[in-house]
Design a protein around this nucleic acid. Structure first.
Lengths: 147, 147
DNA sequence: TTTTATCAGTTGACTAGTAAAGTGATAATA
DNA sequence: TATTATCACTTTACTAGTCAACTGATAAAA
């Protein structure tokens, strides 16, 4: 019984890479009082605000319930606000949220980029972008089919 | 303020791919009463048994506390056993664990591989393996430095 | 107008993980 | 021998997520 195909070796590499670089980013973002997941969500809100919870959930590939909890925490910390409007809730950043991102984003982008550009050449980066785009599109479509 | 470098685009693709393909695998493994995380741990135990908790934690990039909880669940389900031996605990699969893996592994390997080989060519797979190996090695080293 | 459906979000019970403090056995030192 | 350190693991309190059942408001059908 073969359990180590090239594909499953890649799978292991990718998941280990994601958890390890997540640890590093969490550590780095501690100075701003943020986690990697929170930073990810805040960036999406900043880009698309005002946005509904369902739209946001779709963008960060999390369930309705997951985004509900996450936003409850971010609201408690005063980083975002939810305004009930008709039967939907429109999410946007507060001034505090906006200010933190202004400082955190450039630093986090440089830090996060370092995992890639210190390990790979410019050519390899382009190839990797191409390959991961294909993978993600395929997995995304397969997920949509499932429902 | 530039927040969309090629690197951070790759980051997003990779993390979204990992969560989406994890959903698919979780769904697939439901028929064996397993989650993707549990399957991952069981395969490592099968490969290295008898193994200590600390060694196992290292292999699956999880903390001591994390592996302790995970193994408590797997033990409760009767898939593994922990034998106290001197001051360490040696982990191994039970018959039940071994039997489930025997059926689940070939199917899960085929399913997991499909995310890759249906989206990419053989050539691209080899390239991707090369690139992800570099990435993971780099992130792993950086994590070791941190401690 | 009452009922029913639907839609956006929340909540309960769970898995899976973290950091940091705690436990209990073994080994090293005073 | 008594004390202290260390080691392997557990536990507490938390973030982050899942699914599925539940609200509560709006819209559509009877």
């Amino acid at each position: 019984m073969k359990k180590n195909t090239l594909e499953s070796l890649i799978w292991t590499r990718i998941t280990r890479f994601v958890t390890e670089s997540n640890h590093l980013s969490n550590d780095f973002l501690k100075r701003f009082g943020l986690t990697t997941a929170q930073f990810d969500v805040l960036i999406q809100i900043q880009t698309y605000q005002p946005i509904t919870q369902s739209e946001l959930a779709e963008k960060v590939t999390v369930t309705q319930g997951g985004i509900s909890r996450m936003l409850a925490r971010l609201e408690k910390d005063g980083l975002i606000e939810r305004k009930q409007e008709w039967k939907i809730k429109k999410i946007s950043l507060t001034n505090k949220g906006e200010e933190i991102l202004e400082v955190a984003t450039p630093e986090q982008v440089v830090f996060q980029s370092s995992f890639f550009n210190e390990a790979l050449t410019e050519e390899e980066l382009k190839k990797l972008y191409e390959l991961t785009t294909k993978l993600q599109k395929y997995a995304h479509e397969k997920n949509l089919e499932q429902q």
